[in-house]
């Protein structure tokens, strides 16, 4: 190593270090570049397609669109959905299969959206709720159809 090289090493090294320090120094004084999201204070902007959990929309008459066909149950890779059906007597006296309970295991769900694609009647959709933390795992088992709800007219 010649003397010239020796000093060249020092100079190059110092210069490269100074470049890095200039960069961090820049950010130190430019607080406008800060990107921290103050989450609980400022609610996050979620995309409309964001998949938070499966919900079953009900209309104002407490009616849903689920026929209890179990297509979603079959489509789910994790066994997240369990559908319990019952037999209802229709006005014209026939027995008809209808939804009793739509049990949804949020703790098993990976939000893969396969059930929503599988649903033939658009009965379920993904909501944007993402704050799912609870103290007990059993609280994550949800029944999606509201008590007393019935199938919407005209949905087969």
């Amino acid at each position: 190593m010649t003397l010239k090289q020796y000093f060249r090493n020092i100079w190059d090294g110092m210069r490269s270090l100074a470049a890095g320090m200039r960069r961090t120094g820049y950010y130190f004084f430019h607080h406008k570049e800060i990107i921290t999201q103050e989450y609980p204070d400022v609610p996050p902007r979620l995309a409309e397609r964001f998949r938070g959990e499966v919900v079953m929309p009900h209309n104002e008459n407490n009616e849903h669109r689920c026929t209890g066909c179990t297509a979603c149950e079959l489509a789910c890779p994790n066994g997240t959905i369990k559908i319990i059906t019952k037999y209802e007597i229709t006005p014209d006296g026939k027995k008809k299969k209808a939804l009793d309970k739509f049990i949804y295991h949020l703790e098993l769900c990976t939000m893969c959206n396969l059930c929503i694609i599988a649903c033939p009647t658009d009965a379920i959709k993904m909501s944007q709720a993402f704050e799912h933390s609870v103290f007990d795992r059993s609280q994550l088992i949800k029944i999606l159809n509201k008590p007393g709800s019935r199938l919407m007219e005209g949905v087969e």
Binding site: L46, A47, R49, F50, R51, T110, M111, C112, N113, L114, M126
Partner: peptide
Amino acid sequence: NEIMEETCGARLTMN
């Protein structure tokens, strides 16, 4: 991730 979220609906495991 935000671009992904907007189009795919999730940030990490988009599926």
